[in-house]
Design a protein around this nucleic acid. Sequence first.
DNA 1: TCCCAAGACTTGAATGAGTCAACATCTTAA
DNA 2: TTAAGATGTTGACTCATTCAAGTCTTGGGA
Lengths: 143, 143
Amino acid sequence: MTASQPPTTAEELRGAGLRVTAARVALLETVRNGDHLDVEALTSGVRDRIGQISLQAVYEGLHALTGAGLVRRIEPPGSPALFEGRVGDNHHHIVCRSCGVVADVDCAIGEAPCLTASNDHGFAIDEAEIIYWGVCLDCSTAS
Amino acid sequence: MTASQPPTTAEELRGAGLRVTAARVALLETVRNGDHLDVEALTSGVRDRIGQISLQAVYEGLHALTGAGLVRRIEPPGSPALFEGRVGDNHHHIVCRSCGVVADVDCAIGEAPCLTASNDHGFAIDEAEIIYWGVCLDCSTAS
DNA sequence: TCCCAAGACTTGAATGAGTCAACATCTTAA
DNA sequence: TTAAGATGTTGACTCATTCAAGTCTTGGGA
């Protein structure tokens, strides 16, 4: 055998304790190829790959993948849930107030919680989630 | 006339360009007396004060008050919209992963945007919204 | 290789949050 | 006092997501 290869999507699913099905392989690859896609976009992406999948299977698969730590779910206020394949770091997001597009922003620290609250009210804080709000280049030039 | 008094709720509404109705006075006072209440809790709070109000009037009133800058709407992922009367500063929030309770966290800077993104992707950023996630004292002692 | 139990998928119905529309009522400026 | 227009009411509706029941698939063992 040659030196270790990067794991296939199927191997990653199995390694995370999930069964390997065409639906989940296609779903994970769609999330990773996409850029903060919502459930509807993911569903049509999976259908492009394997022909057919029910909406409920997409929701189920996303729960499983999110629970296994293979995808991350974000939910900017005013938007349905979005999914991204970048996990394991503690990056943040920037959202356009006009068109809703989302971009990643690296975290200066890189691991959670990257900020300390001025008063934690007795909470055991494990994460600081930052959403930057602004207007993207396309929208600001269009106006 | 004596020295200036703090404005009444009615005067604040008028000053913000809104008409003074029993519903909106009661709504604004309910938001301010409450602590990150959702629409359902606000509706029953208003009903305690003035007897009856439709759910739609609450939604309409909250839109008006939010638009006028008299109340602030927050929407932690996984929770319906919550409303608070603390406006004009740029404070943040801490949310309990277990029971969902929300507490205020002062911003070290005090005005938006209080953080600078490591890479703004060309966005014109005007606000950095921070949600701290953790477990509140009640939930951590209960477990 | 075959079996089968747990997990995954399908269809269909339901929930919860929020919005839209049409009409009635109330506020407020003239 | 009056009338324009903002506000409130009722009722229907949309959208995202979840629940339920039954069928199919996967993968570890006989």
